[in-house]
Write a protein that binds this DNA or RNA. Structure first.
Lengths: 153, 153
DNA sequence: ATACCTGCAAATGCTTTGCGGATGG
DNA sequence: CCATCCGCAAAGCATTTGCAGGTAT
């Protein structure tokens, strides 16, 4: 764990002009400890508070911007008002997200898209999509039965 | 045009307990005039100002909430900070959205998903997705050549 | 009559910014 | 040494809400 943080940090320093500070190290630790989740700035803030020292919200935002630009994390906006971040693991299979409109639950899925979709979109539309950037909204198992559908033409 | 607005209004009144006001009529007109676009509250506000009377922003938001709940419009969050609305046309083929991360352009696509995906997700994940709710982020033709990709592990 | 709607101002809540002081390389 | 970063307070900005008066049905 500690090692992985340092690996990333060394790589960052090597390839970029950014500096390594205690705050950024701690943020990276928290991100790695939660690498299977989608975590918000608020949650990172709380977790830093539970550890020794608290990292102020603006500092976290600034760190997230840099980590995103350098490809260490992926920023997601699932429409619930909080940006969500996930640690990027190149080893992990490309996945996409199902988002429940009611409870906000995120379900990860793989193998959803046709194999040739990337090339098809590139050729037909000139559009080059990002891995993991696909989102589908709807309702999860638990929420399906709690719905009302008032009016439709 | 006028007719279509009135049809919708009559249908709304019939099936719901909501009231038809001049403001809501005007908003519906604007939505229909822009039925091929994705339009923001701010744009609706500007367009109402160009017509005879100006509809205040909070009134527009409240109308949009109701129109969305009743299925007349679809609300979209493309991640640029503004909710975007499109008039729902049942005649139109189900479409999805490609969103350019750089310029914000929206490209509509159809026939993207495998036919059986809806049932597969329902059975495998218990997830019931909304038609038209799929989004893929990436870069459009025009923006692809203006990019930099700094660091990747 | 009365439940619903409007319009103004003010509040919300996530995110960003300005700036003086601190610090990594 | 000095460019970058931190931390605090304050600002930004889309969206929401309270409330008093208005309107549709």
């Amino acid at each position: 764990m500690k090692l992985e943080v340092n690996d990333i940090i060394n790589s960052l320093v090597e390839h970029n002009e950014l500096r390594i500070t205690d705050q950024r190290k701690k943020i990276l630790e928290i991100l790695i400890e939660n690498k299977d989740k989608h975590i918000s700035v608020e949650e990172i803030y709380s977790l830093s508070k539970q550890k020794d020292n608290t990292i102020p919200i603006p500092t976290i935002y600034r760190a997230m911007d840099i980590l995103e630009k350098t490809g260490v994390i992926i920023k997601n906006d699932f429409g619930d008002g909080f940006a969500k971040y996930e640690f990027f693991m190149k080893e992990k299979e490309t996945h996409h997200h199902l988002i429940c409109r009611k409870c906000g639950k995120i379900i990860e899925i793989t193998g959803l898209l046709p194999e040739d979709l990337y090339n098809r979109l590139l050729q037909e539309k000139g559009f080059q999509y990002e891995a993991q950037s696909l989102k589908i909204y709807g309702y999860c198992k638990e929420c399906i039965n709690k719905l009302r559908k008032p009016y439709s033409r």
